[in-house]
Design a protein around this nucleic acid. Structure first.
Lengths: 128, 128
DNA sequence: CTGTATCCCATGAGATACTG
DNA sequence: CAGTATCTCATGGGATACAG
């Protein structure tokens, strides 16, 4: 890991200064509706388009296509076209994609740990 | 930490099953335009509305208000109204908010580490 | 099988003005 | 000071149909 136990002050600097746009950028990457789902479904194994589509249900064809392309653009997945008939395309996470997978899992851990508590807070807040 | 070295298979289960909605939920919470900024600016210290507003520039009054309220609803911040004149309201992260701060910093670490590489990948991808 | 092209609408968020 | 109320517009993303 590159930031294992970075000091708090350093991280605060990062988040308060120029780093803010970087962080926003990452959040746009990971915060859209499907990226994390696709990243997690891809995991460490290569998968085909329709395979991913089934695993990521109810994603639409359009959104899977768009999500994969912007991930490819960011160097998170590789796209390999096998020139067979019928067509066959394989997707796999790159090393960078795998490192994002780790972050996504960290996030997922927090989500699972806090989902119930948040739900409860909301109910209290929304009460009469 | 609740999920320090959770096994991969367990996490994969979490992300593929019911956990998906939970994760989406968290991403909507943290993935909006201002939550992470506000969380980071709040950090470990109590702050007033306009103080936060300056620190989170160029956030609008409306969005800071909305962001803080949904964070309060989720039990991430506390809002304390001091009945003085002129009015004074203090905001601070709750323990849950602080745990999210840690996750946000993890994300920020990844962002900083990968921003340059992603930028480069994009340029290559977008090339003529 | 693996996509692209359109159309369409709900939502997120900025600008601005007003209030306790 | 600490908000709320409108208005407005860009965009994200679903449904559907078509294409290589």
């Amino acid at each position: 890991m590159a930031h294992p136990t970075t000091s708090i002050s350093e991280q605060e600097l990062v988040l308060c200064g120029q780093g803010r746009e970087l962080v926003r950028d990452v959040l746009e990457r990971i915060g859209d509706k499907w990226s994390v789902v696709v990243i997690c479904q891809l995991g460490h194994t290569t998968k085909r388009f329709n395979e991913l589509r089934r695993l990521s249900e109810p994603i639409t064809q359009r959104m899977l296509s768009a999500t994969l392309r912007s991930m490819e653009r960011d160097g998170l997945v590789t796209r390999t076209l096998h020139d067979t008939k019928p067509l066959r395309v394989d997707y796999a996470l790159t090393p960078r994609g795998l490192s994002l997978l780790a972050v996504a899992r960290h996030l997922a851990g927090w989500a699972v740990d806090n989902a119930a508590g948040i739900q409860e807070s909301r109910e209290v807040f929304d009460a009469p």
